[in-house]
């Protein structure tokens, strides 16, 4: 391999593309094109901050969990999510180094709306059924999108995902156990699950993002596929989710919230009603049902604890 300092930008790019094509892993200190670095920063900081914002809707149900066993389970689950956030923000922080930015900057980006968090975490949680459904289907959906990136060309992200996916499998089992207890329980409990599924359905479809950028005006799936950060398109992932979960939903005696939904045997695809993508655009601009409340909660706690960070910085220096 020739000396990087002697190479032109074009040569560096060519070599980089060759490495990616050969299935090589790019590491934090390796040369990478700006477009690649920016795509990673956007993807990983959004993923990391979503894990942290995602703790907030679930945490609403942690103190209320209906038994000692469930209290222990959901505490461990939400703790894991915070742990994933930490792992991912560390990866993002390394990528941000050339720009002189750090975690504090990411927090400010979140607060001023530049850094988005995942659409599902803007939603209301109204019952214990929602707590189960998040674990079962939101984490189930996350497993599908994250497994798609396990082979990501960026090594640090791929390695973080290995661990995250392993834990997400437990989460989906934890969620499924809650849902099964409810689905096999009293009439009121069964109604609770069906109601949660009905309310979360559109958000779950939106989770995978629009099929193409024609829907919302922009999509990063093209560039992430080009650089082998991911392999499948949004629509392929959504179909994989249906393949896995539609039979499970039906086997629990639940009804699909979309009565028109069916499997097209000939084309081997699920045919379903599109969610309201205009609503999706609103949600990811922090205009969802609970967007402002959750941001405000994080902002307030961040400000309330500013003295602690100051105090720690003072003891370190």
């Amino acid at each position: 391999m020739s000396n990087l300092t002697m190479m032109t930008e074009e040569e560096k790019l060519e070599q980089f593309v060759q490495r990616i094509e050969a299935g090589d892993k790019i590491e934090a200190d390796d040369w990478m094109p700006e477009e690649y670095r920016m795509a990673l920063i956007k993807l990983i900081s959004m993923h990391g901050i979503s894990e942290i914002m995602g703790a907030l809707p679930e945490k609403e149900w942690v103190p209320k969990a209906p038994s000692l066993h469930r209290k222990l389970g959901i505490m461990a689950k939400v703790q894991d999510e915070m742990g994933h956030g930490q792992l991912l923000l560390r990866v993002a922080e390394d990528l941000l180094k050339p720009y002189g930015k750090n975690r504090g900057d990411l927090m400010q980006d979140l607060f001023n709306g530049d850094l988005k968090f995942h659409n599902v975490f803007h939603m209301d949680t109204r019952t214990w059924g929602d707590a189960g459904l998040i674990g079962w289907l939101v984490d189930g959906a996350a497993i599908i999108t994250q497994t798609n990136m396990l082979g990501a060309s960026y090594g640090p992200y791929a390695r973080a995902l290995q661990r995250i996916c392993a834990e997400e499998v437990f989460h989906a089992q934890h969620g499924e156990a809650i849902i099964m207890a409810l689905a096999e329980g009293t009439e009121e409990q069964r109604a609770m699950v069906q109601d949660a599924l009905n309310r979360w359905w559109d958000a779950l479809l939106m989770f995978f993002g629009p099929a193409s950028k024609d829907t919302t005006g922009s999509s990063k799936q093209d560039v992430t596929i080009k650089y082998k950060i991911r392999t499948k398109t949004n629509e392929q992932l959504r179909q994989a989710f249906f393949d896995k979960y539609v039979p499970r939903i039906l086997s629990l005696g639940l009804k699909l919230p979309d009565p028109t939904m069916h499997y097209d045997e000939e084309n081997k695809v699920w045919v379903y009603q599109q969610p309201d993508w205009a609503e999706f655009k609103k949600i990811i601009k922090n205009q969802g049902p609970r967007s402002q409340e959750r941001l405000n909660l994080r902002r307030t706690s961040y400000e309330n604890n500013a003295w602690v960070r100051d105090a720690l910085a003072a003891t370190v220096s």
């Binding site: 942290i52 703790a55 907030l56 945490k59 942690v62 103190p63 209290k71 505490m75 939400v78 703790q79 915070m82 742990g83 956030g85 930490q86 923000l89 909660l297 994080r298 706690s301 604890n305 602690v308 960070r309 720690l312």
Partner: peptide
Amino acid sequence: SEWLGLAPHIEEDVASSSIS
């Protein structure tokens, strides 16, 4: 458990929720 998600930094959130 009420503190979950609100600790002074993310590492502490992980640690103190483990203690809870």
